[in-house]
Amino acid sequence: MDWIAGLLIPFVKALVLVVLLLTGFAYLSYVERKLVARFHVRYGPNRAGPFGLLQPIADGLKMLFKEEIIPRHADKLFYLMAPAIVVVPALLVWAVIPISNFSFRIFGYEITFYLTDLNIGLLYALAVAELGTYGIILGGWSSNNKYALLGALRTSSQMLSYSLPMGTALLSILAVVGSLSLVDIVNAQRGLWFIFLQPLGFLIYFITGLAETNRSPFDLPETENELVAGFVTEYGGIKFALFYMGEYISMMTTSALATTLFLGGWWGPFVDELPILGIFYFVLKMSAVVFLIIWVRASLPRVRFDQLMGFCWKFLLPLGLFNVMVTATVVALWG
């Protein structure tokens, strides 16, 4: 009977999670288009179905039925692998994100609302999320196109640079909690969310999160005015959609991690009495961060590449280190 708890339940949970995330991606693209349209005082998609709700399905079908074009000069193996390498790590991170502490029993087996409570959860999330960079670099390289390669190189330098300040923001959280498990981190925020304890940390995390997911104003990898479309230049049809799936799921992951690390995860009013409310609070907080990301996209222009690098190395990293130093001192003296 052990295989049920060890294999079947995680498998079913992972399946549900993947289905939810892919649906979430489809409707996130819809929500983003709608929201950006409203920011522009337009309607956005409203033709397919009521309020354009079937738009993601129409888009998906269109992408699926497009002719598959593989450039003759492309490195075929890596060209085909790259989109998958972008999507899979973005999905993998969700294995450790605790959605709620609510759990129920079916036939004596406890079902929790997270796939696993890894004791190195935060490290795992960071490591796996960084893997997505490989997909982008391989995509750019194997396309054998100068714009794609330039976009990919930019992405790699941008993502590697911004992981450092992001690491400092997470480090200060670690200093406070003393555990890498995401469940422990959320539990530690029961009284006070870390955004109030670490406002600087949240700011740094949010900015680096935008850069890590290649979102505006740091969407340098896809600057259409310089690079056609960056690393996706040679991609079309469903492979193109997969790159965007990776980007949008990363965006959800970043929001979910921000919720877990800074916004108190599932905690909210009445969660102690009714734990199932935690799911609602988690989704609410995550949506708020997603809205913030879209809002930033609608508001701020793209930065120049030297500004991007200078901002990271000369400003964010020292600021992050300063934050870690102050946190560490406070924890060491009064913790």
Binding site: R38, F39, Y43, W295, L300
Partner: peptide, 21 residues
């Protein structure tokens, strides 16, 4: 400046779309 930009877009979010359908 960032706060001003965000404020402007937020105001426009609440406006009625001017699109002629």
């Amino acid at each position: 400046e960032i706060a001003r930009a965000m404020w402007i877009t937020l105001i426009h979010l609440l406006r009625r779309p001017v699109t002629n359908q």
